[in-house]
């Protein structure tokens, strides 16, 4: 049954609409809940995207167990460890940025975001050193594999998986940096973010924590496991 008068719809809509509420939502809470659920669905999709890469890791670790362990000795776990700490710290500062948003302290939000971007930058620089070291040593995937320290098996497949996993993860870090920069110079500067409506910062936070989560699994599997 269609109730035909407009104002009754108004009453059914509850309190007067806040400015940021889109016209097709009944209430602000419904919009926030929808945005949050949409983000979690997106994060699930990211998890499954990386599951393909982890699948390749486990498959080839099973097919070539010995060369897998021999090849992963060539990775510098200290650099990996440093990157883990850097990323964990950036995750902390991102969480604090979201908290600052909840406390309506926009200056602190921008400050924490800059620290997060800085850490992400450090992460990429460390990755650059790792990659350049591998390019010189010749431990590269496929037919570029010229390293001869490992005998038998297919060590170039290990490096194919290594470059694919860390490369795609690195790409997601760079995307994260881009979004954070856009957020600082876009919505935050224009004052669109406030205590009442900050899903944008929250969602970027969730995305960043997921990127950190993926590295938390990637680091031990690639760098450490004996």
């Amino acid at each position: 049954m269609l109730s035909h008068n407009e104002n009754e719809a108004e009453a059914a809509g509850g309190h007067e609409h806040p400015a940021w509420q889109a016209h097709h939502f009944y209430s602000g809470a419904q919009q926030k809940a929808s945005v949050k659920l949409g983000m979690w669905a997106f994060l699930v999709q990211e998890v499954l995207f990386f599951s393909g890469l982890f699948m390749a890791y486990f498959a080839f670790r099973y097919l070539y167990p010995d060369t897998w362990l021999a090849a992963h000795e060539l990775l510098d776990w200290r650099l990996g460890g440093l990157n883990t700490v850097v990323l964990l710290f950036s995750s902390l500062t991102m969480a604090l940025a979201v908290r600052a948003c909840q406390l309506d302290d926009m200056k602190a939000v921008v400050r924490y975001l800059w620290i997060t971007i800085g850490c992400a930058g450090i992460f990429m620089v460390v990755k650059y050193f790792e990659y350049s070291h591998k390019f010189h040593a010749g431990t590269l995937p496929g037919k570029w594999y010229t390293f001869d320290g490992i005998e038998g098996g297919a060590p170039e497949v290990f490096f194919a998986v290594y470059f694919m996993m860390t490369g795609v993860h690195g790409l997601h870090v760079v995307i994260g940096i881009g979004i954070m920069l856009w957020m600082i110079f876009g919505p935050i500067r224009k004052g669109k973010i406030s205590k009442d409506y900050y899903p944008l910062v929250e969602n970027v936070g969730l995305y960043w924590h997921l990127v950190d989560l993926i590295w938390i699994f990637l680091f031990p599997l690639l760098y450490l496991v004996r």
Partner: peptide, 24 residues
């Protein structure tokens, strides 16, 4: 190696629990 991979995944899961629980 097969035990060490289990431990590595286990510790990573605990870390993931904390990140997802509190940070997210």
């Amino acid at each position: 190696s097969d035990i060490s991979i289990m431990v590595a995944i286990g510790v990573a899961c605990v870390k993931a629990f904390f990140v997802a629980g509190w940070f997210m």
